[in-house]
Write a protein that binds this DNA or RNA. Structure first.
Lengths: 339, 339
DNA sequence: CTGAAAGCGCTTACAG
DNA sequence: CTGAAAGCGCTTACAG
């Protein structure tokens, strides 16, 4: 295997400096004379030198690898998160290890700790509904693992996070329904392990309270973010003596399920029933009528989250930060103004 | 940073052997007495020893990391591929680096070569439509990069692959349409950079030839695998003087688009028009009527592909292999028997 | 079946 | 601003 690999040694010799100086240039350290730096850089380019990650990791006690942990039903969501995180990784010189898992496993803490130790990860990005598990967070923090949450705030002082303004935006969308004449509004609850499910419900409630509309428990149905649960919840709401005139489903899959249930009952959407979803999933545009929904800037959020993690890796005393990203309402065909 | 990390040294001392013997046990080498191996293993467990990947990579000249390269419009597909590949990685002790890219970039070869060199990847898994690019494959192979394709065979003797029986299964599904009384069958072509688009068309043709049905060029429309292209292609076919009675769309997104176009024209599906898709994407179950489609064992294929790559990494003289996986026809509501 | 020595390619900790 | 030495934790190449 003794190909003439170009190492830091080769560069040093050709640039007539010590390997330490080459190391300084690679690591963008300040204390290098500009002319020296330029010379070393030129040699690096000329030789096509790429520092060995293994050697750097071994000597520097940092792998420059982080892990992304997820267990989310939406493929589009997961891919957006990956894309955002990767973007940040590329620009900061980190590599990413993805790790899908079962958020309800009672061995998840051990699984993740073992993952971090085995692959010497510098930190972990946790997504919903994993980052909602405070007990898990505590165990990970006890194991000195650097953490950032995407999608849920933590009470743990060591955990930074990014999240959306779910409550606000659902409040807005509910107010909009009310202003369009709807007062019987069904609510399909998301999977209870997700913070966002509760936040979205709180927005719905806030809007009704503000408009002095009594909250009808019959109109609140428990789903789990799946299409199938949307169908069931939709059926249930349509079987009520007094069916709602509008239904907010806590994500687009469930909204699509409600739409399916409506179709099966030969209801016309939005004439007979208005439907609102959440997430701007591809399906929200691929069904007919297309869904009024909410778009979160998932990629940006994820990119930012990775940045927070890198900061914490470099300086573990950095302040914990909770960044909220605003979502955008997208009005499409599935909502009707009542007369 | 001098925590009392347990290293191979710690294990060796406690087990009263040399570090070389511990190394042998870790690497499952044959030449170790059973009793010695058991003793070392016990110490490893007791101490919770995990070998340093960096040290192994540096000394052993192999990173045990592979890359997964993709540029596919379907999130569900990408995630299935990741899941399958990861499964194999876990069992063989490899780590995975994901790398989304632009398959049409003319700098893709340099980008991938640079990626492999920078992260010292042991090999690459290429998915459609990247692995269709023979020029790219040649460049990668010239750079001594180990390769396996998912989704397309290569003429390059060094590239193993896994793929589906697309032509066969589309032939079957087309024959089924004919047997149900359809002879005017529209065909929505997929993105031409994908081998599968061409294979699916070839299956369609074979079926018509076998049934002595003339191929009507007007019925063949070019899409690009997107929902929007499906809508356009659907409109086009519906505007023909003699509209087809059935349409095969080369994936489910396009089939959903055709369905949307049919809705916009107030056509009833499947009464007025039968529609068939491909991929068993979630949307095929989330629209109404649900789509007759084809399911490929993506996860299994991907897991197998990773296995092929590992074999080639360990022994570069191993034979190139092309493994075909059979797909499954899924009959749902979007197809009608003509009287 | 087992081990001692050298070395993989960097960074750390000093020193100047 | 620059460098010489030691060491990170393994595997390789030998030797026995």
């Amino acid at each position: 295997m003794r190909t003439n690999r170009v190492t830091i040694q080769t560069v040093a010799e050709k640039a007539k400096v010590s390997i330490k100086t080459v190391s300084r240039v690679i690591n963008k350290e300040k204390a290098v004379r500009a002319s020296t730096r330029d010379r070393v850089k030129a040699v690096i380019d000329e030789l096509g030198y790429k520092p060995s990650p293994a050697a750097r990791a071994l000597a520097g006690h940092t792998s420059k690898i982080i892990g992304l942990i997820y267990d989310n039903p939406s493929a589009a969501y997961v891919l957006d998160v990956q894309t955002g995180v990767l973007k940040s990784c590329y620009s900061e010189g980190y590599n990413l290890l993805i790790h899908p898992c079962d958020h309800s496993s009672d061995k998840l803490a051990e699984e993740l700790i073992s993952l971090v130790q085995k692959s010497r990860l510098d930190g972990l990005i946790l997504t919903s509904p994993i980052c909602e598990n405070e007990e898990l967070l505590t165990k990970l923090i006890e194991s000195k693992i650097k953490l950032v949450n995407i999608g849920a705030l933590s009470k743990n002082a060591a955990v930074s996070s990014v999240s959306g303004n779910d409550a606000d935006v659902v409040k807005q969308i509910t107010l909009d329904l009310v202003e369009k004449g709807h007062s019987e509004i069904g609510f399909v609850f998301g999977h209870i392990d997700h913070d966002s499910a509760h936040l979205r419900f709180s927005g719905y409630k806030q809007a009704l309270v503000e408009k002095n509309i009594p909250i009808n428990q019959e109109y609140i149905v428990q789903g789990d973010f799946s299409f199938e649960s949307g169908v069931e919840c939709g059926k249930h709401l349509m079987n009520l003596e007094k069916m709602p005139t509008a239904i907010f489903a806590s994500n687009d899959y469930m909204a699509a399920g409600v739409l399916k249930a409506a179709r099966d009952r030969h209801l016309n959407i939005p004439t007979d029933l208005s439907i609102v979803g959440y997430d701007d999933a591809p399906v929200s545009r691929q069904i007919w009528p297309s869904l009024t929904t909410v778009r979160q800037p998932i990629q940006q959020m994820s990119e930012y989250a990775a940045g927070l993690l890198f900061k914490k890796i470099i300086d573990s005393t950095v302040n914990t930060e909770h960044q909220v990203f605003n979502s955008e309402l997208i009005f499409r065909e599935s909502v009707k103004q009542l007369d």
